[in-house]
């Protein structure tokens, strides 16, 4: 019953958006061009959400660790890339790779030092990562200051791309973000389905005991997963720092977005993360643009209402396993 109500509200919302977009017809003076831009904004934002959420869901799915320092590692990646591009004059691409390495390394150290020997105590691990995120965020504030700054995009992505409809053009970099998300998703899918490590990862998602029985060095796989997951947080930070900007406090807001994405989809499920990212990105952008003016400042609220409704109906998320 609650599920039906939720679906009805969702469909009504979407109809409302479409009505506003198409009520004045398909002409140039109608609302369709704006609708296209807003949809692209939603999709590219979803790409950014997916990149950072995929790391979070990988770590949770395999290790059952909810890494609440994920936001701090995200911001760290952004700041490292910023410093390398701005001060060391490094190319954006190299800086992005090094930033991923830095976030991955810090994540790995946290895992090895604090989390590894607390395996199975999920709340305690969550508290540990909260403490780590407090420390990291304060240290970043000390080293990088409080002024919002953006990373300069790579040169050939700096110019807008003409879309070929309604004379619209759109920032190339934001489209690249969407492509990157697709690449990350594809890589995950290939590793999961085609490699032995992927099989272990999937087995781990289902049953940790079974993984041990497979005779693989589980601890090494865990460490690698933590590195990759944290590196993806860093990559998300680099993209966010280029497309948007970097500032203290963004660690928390992106952590919360990534959590919402992962929870909506079901923790540990990659497909769920993709769906969650899409939902969150589009709802966020559509709500900001199409809610009646007097409610538009409530758009930030909507994503959390979405989360609460989904969890009330399905306590483990859309694709989460019941047990």
């Amino acid at each position: 019953m609650a599920a039906t109500a939720a679906v009805v509200v969702g469909v009504l919302g979407l109809l409302g958006v479409l009505l506003q977009a198409f009520e004045k017809g398909l002409g140039t003076e109608g609302n369709v061009p704006t609708f296209i831009l807003i949809t692209l904004n939603g999709l590219t934002l979803a790409g950014l959400y997916f990149i950072s959420a995929s790391g979070l869901t990988l770590i949770f799915g395999l290790l059952r660790v909810t890494n609440l320092a994920h936001g701090a590692l995200f911001l760290l990646g952004g700041y490292v890339a910023l410093e390398l591009v701005q001060d060391a004059g490094m190319s954006w691409w190299l800086a992005a790779v090094l930033a991923m390495g830095a976030s991955g390394l810090v994540g790995l150290v946290v895992h090895q030092l604090f989390l590894r020997w607390n395996q199975g105590q999920d709340l305690r691990q969550a508290l540990i990562t909260i403490a780590v995120s407090l420390i990291l965020a304060d240290q970043m504030l000390a080293h990088f200051g409080a002024t919002p700054t953006a990373i300069a995009p790579p040169e050939w992505l700096a110019q807008p791309l003409s879309l070929g409809v309604y004379d619209l053009s759109y920032p190339r970099f934001r489209l690249a973000m969407l492509v990157a998300a697709l690449v990350v998703g594809l890589l995950f899918w290939l590793v999961y389905t085609r490699t032995r490590v992927g099989m272990v990862v999937r087995a781990g998602v289902d049953d940790t005991q079974m993984t041990s029985a497979l005779g693989v060095n589980v601890q090494r796989v865990f460490a690698a997963a933590f590195f990759v997951g944290s590196a993806l947080a860093g990559l998300g930070g680099v993209f966010a720092g280029t497309a948007l900007s970097l500032a203290p406090g963004q660690d928390q807001s992106f952590l919360v977005s990534a959590l919402v994405v992962v929870i909506v989809g079901g923790m540990g499920s990659l497909g769920g993360a993709a769906l969650g990212a899409l939902l969150l990105g589009l709802v966020d952008q559509y709500a900001g643009a199409y809610l009646p003016a007097e409610y538009s400042n409530l758009s930030a609220l909507l994503t959390f209402v979405l989360l609460a409704v989904i969890l009330a109906v399905r306590p483990t998320g859309l694709f989460g396993k019941a047990r």
Binding site: T66, V260, M267, A308
Partner: peptide
Amino acid sequence: SQGIYFLIITLAFAQV
């Protein structure tokens, strides 16, 4: 919800 899910759903309430 229980455990970590409970923590996160209450985090959502805090944000709302």
